[in-house]
Amino acid sequence: MLKGFQEFILRGNVLDLAVAVVIGAAFTAVVTSIVTAVINPAIGALFNAETLAEALPVVIPTVSGGEATMYFGAVIGAVLNFVIVAAVVYFALVAPVNHLRQRAEKRRLAGQPAVDEATPPTELELLAEIRDLLAKRDGAPPAQ
């Protein structure tokens, strides 16, 4: 059981995922700050509230005879935050990667290599080459 966990942790994908989560959290903090400090007060002013979190209040009676206030502006603020983060992720990451994939596919269909010959080999290609060289040195056939 521990051996399986060790193999999982030592995979390169886990480190990539950890870096992505940290960068994503930092990026979300930046977007949240912009939404909270700039966009929410601007939209809140339209609803005659100091911030969007205090906009569109709805007062409802409670069972004990008091009152509770629901702020629908806070929900609108959270939705705005989500939409902005999603838009930036799409336009900064997803769209460019999709564009590169489409270009590579067009090159492949045209019979050209998908990547320029000047592009350095990937880590996987280097490891496969090292494996084949070691196998050749030991006299064993290269693994496929």
Rank of each mutant, 00 (worst) to 15 (best):
M1N: 08
L2D: 10
F5Y: 13
E7I: 07
E7F: 10
F8E: 09
R11D: 04
G12M: 08
G12E: 06
L15R: 14
D16R: 15
D16K: 15
L17Y: 06
V19G: 10
V21T: 07
I23E: 04
A25E: 12
A26N: 03
T32C: 06
T32L: 11
T32D: 14
T36I: 00
N40M: 10
G44S: 00
G44W: 02
L46P: 01
N48T: 12
N48G: 08
E50I: 04
L56D: 00
L56Y: 06
P57V: 00
V58K: 11
V59A: 12
V59Y: 02
V59E: 10
I60N: 14
P61H: 05
G66L: 12
T69R: 09
F72Y: 07
F72Q: 04
G77W: 05
A78S: 15
V79G: 12
N81G: 14
N81V: 06
V83E: 01
A86W: 00
A87N: 07
V88L: 15
Y90C: 06
L93V: 06
A95Q: 09
N98W: 01
A104F: 00
A110N: 08
Q112K: 15
Q112F: 06
P113C: 12
D116P: 12
T119N: 10
T122W: 09
L124W: 11
L127C: 03
A128L: 14
L134P: 01
K136Y: 10
R137F: 10
D138Q: 06
A140F: 09
P141Q: 11
P142C: 14
A143V: 15
